[in-house]
Nucleic acid binder design. Structure first.
Lengths: 197, 197
DNA sequence: TTCCAACTAACGAACGGTCGTCAGTTAGAA
DNA sequence: TTCTAACTGACGACCGTTCGTTAGTTGGAA
């Protein structure tokens, strides 16, 4: 299907050049058609953008779901795996790059639509993380803290790694993830063996 | 001076709409002149942008310096104040908003220039933070950790708060800063009073 | 003090491009 | 025949940029 190819090209350029930095002719050229032909599939640039954004939203939510649901591991392993997964996805998943850029700096005239989608994603994210921490608190492996606050702190850690991914890709994020993770885990976990090494 | 007014208008629009999303006529209109008149002061859009970027870089480095040098407080107070300061600056300081956006998503054809400036800022940042942690380690208030890693972890915390500032401004960052800070501090400090509260 | 030259900062007009978009057409498949 | 997806051609708008001009100012020299 040709409209899929168009969306694929669109998401690629939107992700690396932003909305204003991407032209329809650029997209069309990548597909191998003329820019006017895009109007056989979409009502215009905004329509194309919003459809692509919706795909990216669903993709991100879906990814997050399958990722978490399949984890019968310990909290520590689960969270650390989520960090690693974030880094892997950033390199390979163009949806995520797109999603990131647009949630950071949406084009002004589509702010409302993007913001609505963004809050939907965020609600989903928090609802998925919360049970993990709640059950860990029950199991008595964490310092006694508000589980909502723990979710916030973990999302902050994810955001910090995300920033490093944007700044310098995976190589750079790798230098940051372990020091930050160690501080985070020491900050939430009950000390079981004293200050380690 | 009129070229200062141009730069002020430019940084404002660059910060909120990005490089591609900002036109010279927009800038000129805000100043109250025609876009052609900008060429009496700058060689073109790129020149204007790079001059503005240089101003922002110097401003940021200067801010950082004066902020840290004036702190004879404890590490805990100093770091927490830096977090609070970050949030205050984001609202009032257009240089910072500009700097942030351009370090996240620079216009492609100016990537090299921006990247060079960015690394200069980052080096400065690390050199300023490192002594704080080193002396705190000597004073024996921290878990024994690599001071470079502590700097990385703290910058991660700053980045996380920055993301929240970009997402939803100060109100939103305020909801995140305390939970994240608490986890961070518990993660690096020696427990002096057991699990608190 | 007057005069002229140089400089400055703004201007209108126009340039070649590219933008997103629309209308009408054509070729092939159902 | 109807429908679809591509095409050609053209539209007005705006982009960054260049040019030549026009005021207003400044600094000496006469």
């Amino acid at each position: 299907m040709s409209s899929e190819k168009i969306k694929k090209a669109a998401i690629y350029y939107f992700a690396i050049n932003g909305y204003e930095g991407t032209s329809l002719s650029q997209i069309a050229e990548k597909v191998g058609i003329k820019k006017q032909s895009i109007y056989s599939h979409f009502n215009g640039k905004d329509d194309l953008f919003l459809q692509v954004m919706n795909d990216a939203l669903n993709q991100e939510i879906c990814d997050l779901n399958t990722k978490i649901k399949q984890y019968p591991k310990s909290l520590k392993e689960t969270l650390y795996d989520l960090l690693q997964d974030l880094m892997m996805r950033y390199e390979n998943n163009v949806y995520m790059k797109f999603w990131l850029r647009m949630s950071f700096y949406p084009p002004g005239h589509l702010f409302d639509e993007i913001n609505t989608a963004f809050y939907q994603y965020e609600r989903e994210q928090k609802q998925l993380f919360l049970p993990l921490f709640k059950s860990a608190i029950k199991d008595n492996v964490l310092k006694k803290k508000n589980p909502e606050h723990l979710v916030i702190a973990f999302i902050s850690l994810l955001n910090a790694i995300t920033v490093e991914l944007v700044y310098g890709g995976v190589e750079r994020a790798k230098e940051v993830v372990d020091p930050s993770w160690e501080v985070f885990w020491d900050g939430i976990a009950l000390a079981t063996e004293g200050a380690k090494e």
